[in-house]
Design a protein around this nucleic acid. Structure first.
Lengths: 135, 135
DNA sequence: GCCGCTACTCTCCATCGGTAAGTACGTACC
DNA sequence: GGTACGTACTTACCGATGGAGAGTAGCGGC
C-alpha cells in the first residue's frame, strides 16, 4: 500500500467500484433509458402502435440501422412488442407493453422539462460562450 | 416528382423534418439530458457541491475526459457552476444551479423507475434470449 | 419480367468515448 | 535544489458506436 500514487489509488477505486456498479440496478437501466433514440421511440409509440416506416418518419433523424437496433433492444427488454402481419408487403407494428407504458410519464416529464427550460439553457449558453470567447 | 423511389421520398422526408427538428426544443434538450453521464453527474451533485475528484470517485466508471467534458457541457448549459478555490492544490467545486436542481426530480424518477422495474426487464431479456436462441 | 413496395441488413466512414500518459502549478521532504 | 506528490485537467491513440446510403427478400402490378 505505500508508494501509491494518486493514479494508482484512482485505478483501485475504479476496480473496487466495478463490483458495486455491477450490483447497482439503477446504473444498468439508467444507461439503457438514457438513450436518445429510446426516449424518442417511446414517445413516438405513446399514442398507440406504429409501423416501422412510420417510426422512421416520425422520429426523423434516426437511421434505419439505429431504428431497428433500438427497437430490438426495447423488444428484448420487454418494453415493446413486435407484430408481423404477413400481408402483401410485410407489415410490422411496434407497440408499447405495460412496462413500456410505465416509462411514458418519465419521457413526457423529460419532454416538458425540455420545453419549459430551453430558453434558460439558450441564455446560459450564450452567456457562457460570450465570456469564454476571449479568456 | 415522378419516378421517385421510396429511398428518395425518405430522403425528402428527412430533409423536410430537419427544419421541423431544428425548431423542436424538446429534441434538442432531450439529446442533451438523455446522456448517461449527465444523469449520473446530476445525481451525484444532488446532495450538494462536490469536488472534481469526488465526482470521479462517486460516479466510478467515468473517465476524467468524460467527466471534464460533461461538466463543461453542463456548465455551458447553466446547470452547474464551477468554482475554483486557489488554495494550495487548486480546488474546484461543482454545484447545481436552480436549473440543474429542476432536473433532479426527473433524475430521481428515472432512478426509481429503474430500481422498480429492473426485475421485469431481466425476466423479459431472459425470455427473449431463450426464444430467439434457436429460431 | 422488371419495378417498386416494406422492413430490414450490410458496408464504409466519421465521430465518440475509454485508457493512459502528460501538463501546470505549488508544496513538502530530503 | 530537486524530486516526488497532490489536484484538475489535456492530449494522443485506438477501438467501439452511430450515420449515410446501397443492397436484399418476397411478392403484386403493369
Amino acid at each position: 500500500m505505500p508508494t501509491q500514487t494518486a493514479a494508482q489509488r484512482r485505478a483501485d477505486a475504479r476496480a473496487a467500484y466495478d463490483a458495486y456498479m455491477a450490483a447497482c440496478p439503477a446504473r444498468e437501466l439508467l444507461d439503457r433509458i438514457s438513450d436518445k433514440w429510446v426516449t424518442l421511440i417511446l414517445n413516438a409509440l405513446a399514442d398507440g402502435p406504429r409501423r416501422y416506416s412510420d417510426l422512421g418518419r416520425i422520429i426523423a433523424g434516426v437511421s434505419q440501422k439505429m431504428l431497428t437496433q433500438t427497437l430490438r433492444g426495447l423488444e428484448r427488454d420487454g418494453m415493446v412488442t413486435r407484430t408481423v402481419t404477413p400481408s402483401v408487403p410485410v407489415r410490422v407494428d411496434y407497440e408499447l407493453t405495460p412496462l413500456g407504458v410505465s416509462l411514458l410519464p418519465l419521457v413526457r416529464a423529460a419532454k416538458e422539462w425540455a420545453e419549459t427550460h430551453i430558453e434558460e439553457v439558450h441564455t446560459a449558453r450564450a452567456a457562457y460562450d460570450a465570456t469564454g470567447e476571449n479568456g
